[in-house]
């Protein structure tokens, strides 16, 4: 049984699912689970953590913490955690977590295991495994010297337990202790185009010549909306004017390596493969059973994309609904 501190994350007034994951995992393993919540005007959120197993929520509120900043977070956290004697400190490996945790680790004089995909609790020790070499191998992490043990955990690795509304956490206010800050977040800018770029998201759905027209790409866009995916295109589709060049995936376009790549109506010529071959999971939908794309696909659907895609959309909606 360890004293575990989970650094919570929130955006736009909501706690992130990955925070609940970590709280649930720590508490579920029988650890004394603390949560640190930093921000400004987010007191209500603190109440949501008890049902997942948090014992205490340390609430640090300050106008300078309204927007996330690595400097502010690491200063406030080290001031709180140094005297608190944690055995384990966890955060999610999100753009925020992966950013401030190293600074905090340096301040506490300990090592940090980043982007772990397997986590286990062993008394006051952590058993961790993480991917290395772009996932071509995994390795266990061993800490050297005294603790606390720090790790960032990849989101969606451990499940979120069902919350128990009967459980509550003690909410403690803590001072921010920020001192003078050398950096400042000026503003958060939402992306100008409504669609993410093919290089930015973990799921990419691409269309080729088989889509037959620019209008038909709307079907892929609708599917992408369900998954929060980006829409890419093969060179043939770009040449035919269906999509702009910035969506082109391939040797002479963008090289992507998403978690999931769905190729619709794409034959899989070598120039295209060069741009997406290293994707973790590849799905191909094509009427031509001999198309080269099936050589690299993990899951191949020989069929008419115009029939498969609407069905796919329906099925995905079913699992996306909570």
């Amino acid at each position: 049984m360890a004293k575990v501190f989970v650094i919570a994350e929130h955006r736009a007034g909501r706690l992130k699912t990955s925070t609940f994951e970590l709280v649930g995992a720590a508490a579920g393993a029988g650890n004394e689970t603390h949560v640190v919540l930093l921000g400004d005007g987010i007191g209500e959120l603190a109440k949501e953590l008890g049902p997942y197993g948090a014992k205490t929520v340390h609430l640090i509120q300050d106008p300078a913490l309204k927007l996330y900043s690595a400097e502010a977070y690491s200063k406030a956290l080290s001031a709180l955690l140094k005297p608190a004697g944690p055995d384990i400190i966890l955060a999610s490996h999100t753009p925020t977590g992966r950013d401030f945790m190293p600074r905090l680790a340096a301040r506490l004089g300990v090592g940090l295991a980043s982007d772990c995909t397997q986590i286990g609790f062993n008394g006051t020790e952590l058993k961790l495994r993480r991917p290395v070499y772009a996932g071509k191998a995994t390795a266990e992490v061993e800490f050297m010297g005294p603790g606390p043990r720090m790790a960032t955990i990849r989101p969606n690795t451990v499940g979120v337990p069902a919350p128990d509304p009967a459980k509550t956490a003690e909410i403690v206010n803590a001072a921010a202790n920020l001192g003078t800050l050398k950096s400042k977040v000026l503003e958060v800018v939402k992306s100008s185009s409504s669609r993410p770029d093919v290089t930015e998201v973990p799921i990419v759905i691409s269309g080729g010549r088989g889509l037959k027209s620019a209008e038909n790409f709307k079907k892929l866009e609708d599917l992408a909306d369900v998954l929060g995916a980006a829409v890419g295109a093969s060179r043939a589709a770009v040449d035919a004017g269906f999509r702009p060049h910035r969506d082109q995936v391939g040797q002479t376009g963008k090289i992507v390596s998403p978690t999931l790549y769905i190729a619709c109506g794409i034959s899989g010529a070598i120039q295209h493969l060069a741009g997406m071959r290293t994707s973790k999971v590849i799905v191909a939908i094509n009427t031509d059973a001999e198309a080269p794309i099936f050589q690299v696909a993990d899951y191949g659907v020989v069929g008419d994309l115009f029939q498969v895609i609407p069905n796919l959309q329906e099925e995905l909606k079913k699992i996306k609904e909570p």
Binding site: T138, A139, E140, V141, E142, D298, D304, Q307, V308
Partner: peptide, 23 residues
């Protein structure tokens, strides 16, 4: 401060599965 050990390679990529049936 940390050391990696017990490296493992992932299982080799299986040949692609063909999914059959109607759409």
């Amino acid at each position: 401060k940390i050391r990696h050990k017990n490296f493992q390679l992932p299982l080799p990529k299986q040949a692609g599965k063909r999914i059959t049936g109607d759409p």
